[in-house]
Amino acid sequence: LDRPVMFNLLGASSVAAIVIGTRRHLEAGRRSAWYLVAAGQALFIAGDVVAYNFPAFFGATLPFPSIADALYLACYPAIVGGLVLLIGQRGLKRDHAGLIDSLIITVGVGTVWWVYVIAPYVQDDSLTLPAKLTSIAYPVMDLLVAAAALRLAVGGGARGPAWALLLGGIITLFATDAVHSGLQLSGGYESGGPLDGGWLLAYALLGAAALHGSMRGLAMPAQGIASRLTGARLAMLAAASMLTPCVALLRSFLGQSLDVTVIGVASIALFALVLARMAGLVRLNEASGRLLAHQASHDVLTGLPNRALFRTRVDQAIARSRRSGDMLAVLFLDLDDFKGVNDTTATPRATSC
């Protein structure tokens, strides 16, 4: 077998692995997300088949853009759709903190992506309009896939081997596409070179993720939805937030052109997202404070005021009585054999008594 045929067969095996793993590990109602990922893989392989065999199919040299590019680009919405469905199945839509964190990283990385990958195509006047739009579409689609993967990565839920393999495949795909875009801009890309190994690795990782039994957990609702702001996550958010100003400073220092509109919009978006994240932390801290104050003055099981709150209220009542001269009384009520009720009918029944 020649190299293109072998490459396409390996890619097709990834599609087969995803379908087989999905049918083996998931019930019918939870398979759609993985089927979309498999469809994206299949579209990418179909694009390869057309690109490698275009002269044989159509009797002409492969143009740009071509039907192969349409198939390549169609794979990205399918993969994004699969990731979005997984996010919904895991219940991450309620995790607002995780959404903000993923958006902060996406905006930071997206600014770098725009300046060094997308903008050169936008500014290239030698390209025809179809070629320019197609060239821009590839990195834009890569960024959408990365954004969906980030949302899945920072959310709660099971994080077994399938989770790591799936994200590893997406990261490998994004990194390979990034290198490919750089080589395309410099004119150094050659089909069939070592870079193709990156796509093969992405295929293998996605197929392995579907075949691993832990992929069941990816389709299950996450327990403990709220995202924790760990030290590692805080460092990652800080680095992402500084990407936009660092790019602006670097290009200014090097005397390179600066897209003020994009940098400005990205900076405003980052400021708003960081402010929203801080507001969420303040609300969470206030809610925790109210909960701790309530727990300090109420019984955990029954929710009734405890001895500490009773003493506080008595002291307050005595102070008011001394100031006003009014009489003060304390009513003590004792229920005979109440312990038996509490022991035999459980706490809710006893509390209602």
Rank of each mutant, 00 (worst) to 15 (best):
H294L: 06
S288H: 07
A296C: 01
L292T: 09
V300P: 03
G280L: 09
Q295K: 11
H294F: 14
A272K: 00
G280T: 08
A272V: 10
Q295I: 03
L275P: 11
R283G: 06
R290Y: 06
Q295Y: 11
A276K: 02
G289D: 13
H298L: 07
S288Q: 11
L281D: 03
V282T: 11
L270W: 02
L292Q: 05
M278N: 10
L270N: 08
L291K: 12
L301M: 07
D299S: 08
V300N: 08
F271G: 13
L281M: 12
L275G: 14
A279G: 13
R290W: 07
S297Y: 10
E286K: 14
Q295D: 09
A287S: 06
V282Q: 09
E286G: 04
A296H: 12
R290L: 12
V282L: 14
A293M: 07
S288N: 15
E286D: 10
L301I: 00
L275A: 15
A272T: 03
E286L: 13
H294Y: 14
Q295L: 01
L270C: 04
A287M: 09
L292P: 09
R277P: 03
F271I: 06
G289F: 02
R277T: 01
A276W: 07
L273E: 05
R283N: 11
A296N: 07
H294D: 03
Q295R: 03
L301H: 01
H294C: 06
L291E: 05
